[in-house]
Every structure is written in structure tokens, then in C-alpha cells.
């Protein structure tokens, strides 16, 4: 007869909670070490400027259409929402001010971050993950080339440099979307709209937008590269890495957005 005691349900309950919590902290630790290791490697030669420019093109230029479409539609929809909501307390005239603040401080960086994360994090994870499972990363090491310097650092720095540029473009296009809808549908005076937009926009708003963009760029590349480099298990592993990269990037973007916003205004 077995004398094994039945598992205590309370212990089982806390174990079920504890395991994912411990795993989450372990993952945070691993990603942090990965980022620090990459930065340390990137500060010493050899450097790969051509790889940096290739990645800037991939991340920036190739993302422009999707970023532009997202920004113009969001800016226009935002103008309509503010006009409709504002009409409840006779505040329709605040449309230019709220469009510009919302776009520059919040929607521009976050939407660009999320769109680029969906496009770029997944691509990085798939490419590096495939290289991992086909032993190309191991081959690179045996061929006297450090994968952190050759693969990871150019992606990380390209993303940090490119995202602020993309966000600036998205902010302008988003404000322009709001302008178009306000002029042609809501009947605003073009000159007054532009004057109000320029008057309300402050240097701090633009700085916040750029800081957020750089932080998001860092997390987008970090999530994609980490998921790719830690890929295990063939094609299925590459699929999991791609999903993890996008989910990780989304969470990091939304969390860091809150932290940056609270740090600035909290």
C-alpha cells in the first residue's frame, strides 16, 4: 500500500502561481543580461557600420508605408472623436490642440512602436531564430565573428536611431490627418487650425515623443533579437520565438510608455 500523502491543495495553488512568477523574473533577468552583454560588446571593435545602415533601411524605410497609413487614419479619427465629444460641452474648438498633444505625446510613439514591433520584432526573431536552429550562429562563432557584434548590436542601435525618425514622420502625418478632416469635414478655418496647433505644441512634447520612440525602439529590437538567439527546436521553435518576440515587444512598449509618462508627469 502506498503511503504517499495527497498533495496539499493550498501548496498546489501557490505553486501554480509561483512557477510562472519565478519564470517571469528569470526571463527579465536573462533579457537584462542579454542587453548588457550586447551593449558591452558593441562598445568595442570590430564594428559593422554597413550592417547598421542595412538594418536602419529595413526598420525605417520599409516601415514607412504602414506607419504613414496608421498615423493619417488615427489623426483623422481622433479629430472626429474630439469634435463629437467636445460638442457635449461646447469645446469643439479644442480639436487642433488635443489632436497635436495626443498625437505627439501618446498616439504617435505608441502606435508606431506597436506597428513596427509587429513588423520588425517578428522578422528579427524569425531570421535569427532560423540561423540558430540551422547552426549558422555556431558557424559564425567558428568563423571568428561575434554574433552579438555582427547580428545583435546593429539591430539594436538601428532600431534606437530609426524609431524617433519614424515617430517624427508619424506625428506630422497624424496631425495632417486631423487637419484634413477638420478642414474638409468639420469646417475649421485652415489658418486658425495651424496657428492653434503651433501655439499649443511645446518643446517638451516633442522631447517626450522622441524619448519614448528611442525606448520603444530599444525594446522592439531587444525582444526580437533575444527571442531569436534563444530559439530551440526547429521550425516550431522559430514559430514560438516569433510569437514571443511580438508579445514581449508589445508588453514592454506599453509598460515603458506608462513608466515614461508617469516619470514625466506623475
Amino acid at each position: 500500500m502506498s503511503n504517499t500523502a495527497a498533495p496539499n491543495p493550498v501548496i498546489l495553488f501557490f505553486a501554480a502561481i509561483g512557477r510562472p512568477v519565478i519564470a517571469a523574473f528569470a526571463a527579465i533577468g536573462h533579457v537584462t543580461l542579454f542587453a548588457l552583454h550586447t551593449i558591452r560588446k558593441a562598445l568595442t571593435p570590430p564594428w559593422y557600420p554597413l550592417r547598421l545602415f542595412e538594418q536602419m533601411f529595413q526598420i525605417g524605410w520599409a516601415s514607412l508605408p504602414v506607419v504613414a497609413l496608421t498615423a493619417i487614419f488615427t489623426g483623422a479619427a481622433l479629430a472626429q472623436q474630439i469634435y463629437t465629444g467636445g460638442s457635449r460641452f461646447n469645446a469643439q474648438s479644442t480639436v487642433p490642440a488635443i489632436v497635436v498633444i495626443a498625437m505627439v505625446r501618446e498616439l504617435g510613439p505608441v502606435l508606431v512602436g506597436l506597428m513596427v514591433a509587429g513588423r520588425v520584432s517578428s522578422a528579427m526573431a524569425a531570421e535569427i531564430g532560423t540561423m540558430r536552429v540551422t547552426e549558422q550562429i555556431d558557424a559564425m562563432v567558428t568563423l571568428r565573428t561575434d554574433p552579438y557584434r555582427y547580428l545583435i548590436a546593429p539591430r539594436l542601435f538601428a532600431s534606437v536611431i530609426t524609431l524617433p525618425i519614424l515617430v517624427c514622420i508619424a506625428n506630422v502625418i497624424g496631425i495632417f490627418g486631423g487637419y484634413l478632416l477638420s478642414i474638409y469635414k468639420l469646417g475649421f478655418n485652415p489658418a486658425n487650425y495651424l496657428t492653434m496647433t503651433a501655439d499649443i505644441l511645446e518643446f517638451d512634447d516633442i522631447m517626450m515623443s522622441l524619448v519614448k520612440a528611442a525606448v520603444f525602439g530599444f525594446f522592439i529590437a531587444l525582444s526580437g533579437c533575444y527571442a531569436g538567439l534563444t530559439t530551440r527546436g526547429g521550425a516550431a521553435g522559430v514559430g514560438r520565438a516569433t510569437t514571443n518576440a511580438v508579445v514581449g515587444a508589445f508588453i514592454l512598449i506599453l509598460l515603458s510608455n506608462l513608466i515614461v509618462t508617469l516619470t514625466a508627469f506623475g
Binding site: T130, M131, T134, E135, Q136, D138, A139, M140, T142
Partner: peptide
């Protein structure tokens, strides 16, 4: 060292 990997491991 040089190494020939089983699947070639050429850079795509």
C-alpha cells in the same frame, strides 16, 4: 579551428 557543420550552416 575550422568546422564543417552537418547541414552546411551557410549564411542564407
Amino acid at each position: 579551428f575550422g568546422m564543417l557543420f552537418q547541414g552546411g550552416a551557410l549564411f542564407d
